[in-house]
């Protein structure tokens, strides 16, 4: 059981990290709560399903196109709606939420509201030591962590990354220092699209596709970002692992149907006692 806990925990944490980092970048740079973030993942999953399993396009090309779809969608949401209403949190929250439900209904209309099974990206099982792990999970873990590490290097080493961190820490000062916020916003939405695209394809191959699966990744990303401290990529990584392992533990040892409930209850408790998150607000 312990090996299963580690395996589920690592996979879930990696998926949540991918989803949450995009969310935290958007929140940190633009102070935007993007409630359509969950549909980014879902859309990538459906795009992958349609391209690969319906249209029969080759696996890695479908994968690439699915991520690209997600990026295009993300940029469209930013340019089409969010950029026009920036600075009004209530409008941002509601517009992106209504958008999410419009996407949900559009997918119900085109693909039906029954669950669809996505093939694993790679077949087969590997044996590491005494543990059997499906190759799919190994690939998911590998690509996720490569993406996360690449992002960390980008955020900490490049000038753009420094600008992103600067603006999350102190918005006014960063603007005074001559950082172009609208360009940075576009870049963060693109990055968020890439990460959410990866997470979406993996998440759907790990579970299944359904028009309402956007809500769980959204609430988990939101929770992770708040627990980890808004705008903090490292905090999000820690929080994603906490939530991923707690959820896997509940799923394996307590009751599978309680997994979401207990995670959310813990989140509510953390927010009650530490409203600024476990690690405070820093980049």
């Amino acid at each position: 059981m312990l090996d299963q806990l580690v395996m589920f925990g690592l996979t879930l944490s990696a998926l949540y990290s991918l989803a949450a980092i995009g969310f935290t970048l958007i929140f940190g740079v633009g102070r935007i709560s993007n409630l359509s973030h969950g549909t980014f993942l879902m859309l990538a999953g459906y795009a992958f399903y349609i391209l690969h399993q319906v249209a029969g396009i080759s696996l890695w090309l479908s994968f690439l196109l699915a991520v690209l779809t997600c990026v295009v969608y993300s940029v469209m949401v930013f340019k089409g709606i969010v950029e026009k209403i920036m600075g009004n949190p209530m409008k941002e929250i509601f517009s992106t939420l209504i958008l999410a439900i419009i996407v949900e209904q559009a997918i119900t209309l085109t693909c039906g509201d029954y669950p669809l099974n996505v093939y694993p990206i790679v077949q087969g099982v590997s044996i590491i030591g005494a543990v059997r792990i499906s190759n799919n999970i190994l690939v998911v873990l590998g690509i996720s962590w490569v993406a996360i590490i690449a992002l960390l290097i980008f955020i900490h080493k490049s000038n753009l990354g420094r600008a992103i961190r600067a603006i999350s820490m102190n918005r006014e000062l960063a603007v005074i220092m001559g950082i172009d916020t609208s360009r940075l916003n576009l870049i963060t939405w693109t990055l968020a699209g890439i990460l959410a695209g990866l997470a979406g394809v993996f998440y759907s191959s790990y579970t299944y596709l359904k028009p309402d699966i956007w809500l769980t990744p959204l609430v988990m990303s939101f929770s992770i970002v708040i627990i980890g401290g808004i705008g903090s990529v490292k905090g999000s990584l820690v929080a994603a692992n906490i939530i991923g392992f707690v959820e896997s533990y509940v799923m394996l040892f307590v009751n599978e149907r309680l997994r979401g409930v207990i995670t959310l209850a813990i989140l509510i408790l953390i927010l009650l006692f530490r409203p600024k998150g476990l690690f405070g607000e820093e980049a």
Binding site: F27, S33, P89, I93, V219, F222, S223, I226, L264, L267, I268, L271, P275
Partner: peptide, 11 residues
Amino acid sequence: GPYFVLVTLAA
């Protein structure tokens, strides 16, 4: 703000 939105949604 967004925190309260999240807590009520989670609840």
